[in-house]
Write a protein that binds this DNA or RNA. Structure first.
Lengths: 169, 169
DNA sequence: CGTGATCCTTACGTTCACGTCAATTTGCCA
DNA sequence: TGGCAAATTGACGTGAACGTAAGGATCACG
């Protein structure tokens, strides 16, 4: 009867690696440098066990690493922010924290988010400028091609539109 | 009387490095691996000389490297595309190339541009999704803060809006 | 034409982010 | 209760992208 929100299937490191598209070594390495939490209270020597939540976390880590292009060290501080927010959520669910403390926590979280946001926005902006430039160049090339085609069409019988080279757009 | 489109001030490697925010070593390295053209016909041992155009090129290289997050090797192939396009422009300016060849060149250029575009678009898309998610989270936090603030306002005299924490928006 | 700043090449060093190997252990299942 | 696949720790290896140091040569300037 109890809800089954997260199956939390007990996964092993190899499963997790396959799920997110990496290797066990990488996961252990991330643990080593503190990017992922060392499975708490695991008797050294025993196999690591992961839940779906940890898989998601790892996915997020890899996504940020790829998209933001930061070092694992920088990423660690960014993730500290995520963790702080998790802390906030946990604390907020409890009733025994006073208003002032809550405000503090929220304000902190906001700061972290804003740091990430400005980072992301800057990169997103630069990327879309690059995209615009490329599109513009593309248009110019296409125009040239049409011009040449028209010219040829005057000399030879108009060829059926062949190999327009459009990739689905 | 001749136009002065590019000052082409003869720059040395240190100047270039400062201009683009890198080091001489990096520039030499990029030459080594063929990412930048070895200054053609420079008697080995003499100082390298650069023009404004090369500075721009280097800026572009570093921009792509940063934004696309690709290896220098991958970047080399992407830049080969740029060069191909430069070739096209040069060839097109000359009259002694026939239509078919022109079409070929343009079509090739188009292919290169499309490869870059799809790469850029994918990343841009992912980044803006990330941005949206962050914005959403931010909004939720802000809402929580306002709620708490209202609650406090009911208990204590309403405080003047202090430290709203907004960073210019 | 001297001289100090900058550059040249060569070569070895370094950091990051893992890969790989080895010797054991652990975990799961017939 | 075997037995075998997968995991564990530890150590060393590796490729990419430069940094750094050494010993000279070159350049701009006075």
């Amino acid at each position: 009867m109890s809800a089954k929100p997260a199956p939390a299937a007990n996964l092993r490191i190899g499963d997790v690696a396959r799920l997110v598209g990496t290797t066990p070594r990488t996961i252990r390495y991330y643990e080593e440098i503190g990017l992922l939490p060392e499975a708490p209270a695991r008797p050294s020597g025993r196999h690591r066990v992961y839940s779906e939540a940890e898989v998601e976390r790892l996915r997020e880590v890899m996504r940020l690493k790829d998209l933001l292009g930061v070092s694992l060290e920088e990423l660690k501080t960014l993730l500290a922010a995520e963790d702080a927010r998790a802390e906030v959520r946990a604390q907020l669910r409890r009733e025994d924290v006073d208003s002032n403390r809550r405000q503090e926590l929220l304000n902190e979280a906001l700061g972290h988010i804003d740091r990430q946001l400005s980072l992301v926005r800057r990169r997103a902006g630069e990327l879309s400028r690059l995209e615009a430039e490329l599109s513009e160049t593309r248009k110019r090339v296409r125009r040239k091609m049409r011009e040449l085609d028209a010219q040829a069409g005057a000399t030879f019988p108009p060829r059926a539109l062949e190999a327009t080279g459009e990739t689905k757009l």
